[in-house]
Design a protein around this nucleic acid. Structure first.
Length: 290
DNA sequence: CCAGTATCCTGCAGGC
DNA sequence: TGCCTGCAGGATACTG
């Protein structure tokens, strides 16, 4: 084991007001697999502050202490930390500012740390969340969790593109809102919705059902491509993040429109716009997105 | 069916 | 300088 591991979502988003979407959660999952599996759990501490989902501290402690995490799965933006031979699991959602850290026990606890799970080997798994829109809780029956059952298509699964076309064809919502609907696609949030629309040259204001099957399929391909690129980019960014003294050189700017209102479109030079849709900001190019 | 708004929450930036 | 306001948005609930 290395001397220090720090896990979070990639910091390349921070200047754009970053939020963990599917790629960030997947990056965290991969690092958790390497950092917390099969270590006996020694202790659990819960803060007093309420997270988005209610948590029973005694229950969490009873379930975890003495057990080991056997697997970490991801469904959309949710993480499931499973224990060997048990149905129950820790269910985590990072909300907007949630982070999972794996740090040496002697490292000082940073502000807004809500859950600390002490593992054998001198490391803690810590849940930190400034705004507390996320949660870290015990679920007896993760397979029956309503929020997981509601999730729509997995954008990384085989056949996603064709299924998305079928779902989108009959819908009157704006295509941007449709992309963000977790019941349609699980894991796409505000940032990657804008990015995928730009990549496939689709105007975010268009109604989903107005778009041809061909364009919808191209958009679905863009969704997948944007997410996969971010997972790859996130991996390398996190590697920089893990090294406390390493500088984050070699970092590639992945976001082409999000957070770039007023700057020229890198494809056509038109100044990028920012509008509001369903209460969320959308970034797009009014010239090359139609 | 869909749009819009409010709710939770904190930190930060801009205006005056 | 400091206070106030708005904004950031994931999920959910609610109204029009």
């Amino acid at each position: 084991m290395g001397s220090l591991a720090v896990i979070g979502w990639p910091h390349f988003l921070e200047d754009g007001g970053g939020v963990p979407e599917l790629p960030e959660v997947e990056s965290v999952r991969r690092l958790l697999v390497g950092a917390v599996l099969n270590r006996p759990i020694l202790e659990v501490h819960c803060g007093a502050q309420q997270l988005r989902r209610a948590l029973d501290p005694d229950r969490l402690r009873t379930e975890l202490v003495g057990a080991r995490f056997a697997a970490v799965d991801r469904e959309a933006k949710y993480l499931l930390m499973r224990l060997e031979g048990r149905d129950g699991a820790v269910l985590v959602h990072l909300g907007m500012t949630g982070r999972l850290l794996v740090v040496e026990r002697e490292r000082p606890t940073q502000p807004h740390t809500h859950i600390v799970v002490g593992l054998e080997g001198g490391v803690d798994l810590r849940y930190v969340d400034v705004r507390r829109f996320g949660f870290f809780c015990w679920s007896d029956t993760p397979a029956a969790e309503p929020s997981l059952l509601k999730l729509g298509l997995d954008p990384l699964a085989d056949g996603f593109e064709d299924r998305f076309v079928l779902q989108a064809r009959s819908r009157g919502v704006s295509i941007k809102s449709l992309l963000m609907d977790q019941g349609v696609i699980g894991g796409v949030g505000n940032i990657y919705a804008s990015e995928a629309l730009w990549r496939s040259r689709v105007d975010p204001r268009r109604r989903a059902g107005q778009l041809s099957a061909r364009r919808l399929k191209s958009l679905a391909e863009a969704v997948r491509a944007v997410l996969l690129a971010a997972i790859e980019g996130g991996g390398s960014t996190i590697k920089d993040f893990v090294l406390p003294d390493g500088d984050s050189g070699g970092f590639v700017k992945l976001l082409k429109v999000y957070g770039h209102a007023g700057e020229p479109c890198v494809r056509c030079g038109e100044l990028l716009r920012k509008i509001r849709q369903a209460g969320r900001s959308t970034f797009y190019c009014s010239k090359c997105q139609r």
